[in-house]
Computed example of a mutant assay.
Amino acid sequence: MDGKKSRKSLLDFLDYLAKKGLMNKATANARKAAANNVLSILDENEADDVTVVDIDQLFVRFANLQGSKYKPESLNVYKGRLKAAIVDFKNYQNNPMTFRPAVQFNGRKAAERPKTGGQGEVGPPDPPVFRPVASVSGPPPASVSVLPIPIRPDLVVQIQGLPYDLTAAEASKIANVIRAMASTE
C-alpha cells in the first residue's frame, strides 16, 4: 500500500516542487536522486512512512550496503539532501497552505546566508578544512572505504582510511588521538 507519507509520495512531492516552480528544478532533482538511492534500501514496511525513518541509522545501513560506491563527501551531501527533502515533505504534509521549501544556498540554509554590506562585503570566510597530508613513503595500503561508528542515538562518526592490516599498536595510537580530543566538561 502506498501511503501519503511513503517513499513514492516523497519522490512525487519533489517532482511537484520542480513542476510548480516552488524549488529550482536542479535542486529538486538532486534531492530526489539522493532520496531515491538512499531510501531504496528500505523494505516495503519501512518505506510506507519515510517521515519517521531515523536518518542517521539509515545512513549507517546505507554506508554498510553501498558506501563503497560513494566518496565520504558524497555520502554527506546525500544525507543533507535527504534530510532537507524529508523536512520539507513533513512541513508540506502538516500544512500545505503555509508551506515554503527550505532551499539551501551553497550548502547553507537561507537564514545562514552571508549578508552583503553596502560595498559588496560578505561575512567572515568559512574556516579552513583540515586535509591530511599523504605519506611520501609510497602509496597508502589498501583501506576500508568508510567505517561508520554510531556513538550517540543522533550521531554517527565515520572513519576513513583505516588499513585492512591495522595493528593493535596503530589502533591504540588512533584511539589516543581521539581521547585527546574529548572535552573534560
Score class of each variant (00 low, 15 high):
Q160K: 14
L166Y: 07
A169G: 12
Y92G: 00
P140R: 14
Y164W: 13
S6Q: 05
D126G: 11
V136M: 12
D154E: 10
A26V: 05
Y70M: 05
G117R: 05
K5F: 10
L65D: 10
D56H: 15
N91W: 01
D43T: 07
M97V: 11
T51P: 02
E170N: 15
V38T: 04
K32P: 01
A102Q: 08
L166D: 07
D56E: 15
E112G: 09
D54I: 03
K173P: 00
M97D: 14
P72F: 06
P128Q: 09
G138N: 05
V103G: 05
R179H: 08
I151D: 03
Q66E: 13
K32E: 00
L42S: 07
K32V: 00
Y16K: 04
V133G: 04
L65W: 04
I159T: 05
R108D: 02
T167P: 03
L58R: 10
L10A: 05
E121V: 04
G117M: 03
F59V: 03
N36K: 14
R152N: 10
D165T: 14
N91M: 09
Q66I: 02
A63W: 01
F99L: 01
L155C: 15
I178L: 13
I86F: 02
L155Y: 12
V122K: 13
E170L: 13
G138C: 05
S9I: 02
K5C: 06
L166K: 14
D56Y: 13
K4G: 03
I41M: 11
G3E: 10
Y164G: 06
K109F: 09
K173N: 07
P127S: 11
P139W: 11
P153W: 06
V60A: 13
G21S: 01
L14A: 02
S145Q: 14
Y16Q: 04
S143G: 08
P124A: 15
S6P: 06
P101I: 00
F59C: 04
I86N: 02
R108K: 13
I174L: 15
P96S: 13
G117E: 03
A35D: 03
Q119E: 12
P96F: 03
A142R: 12
A18C: 02
K8P: 00
R131E: 08
V177Y: 11
G21L: 00
N94L: 10
G67H: 03
N64H: 12
L14Y: 03
K71P: 01
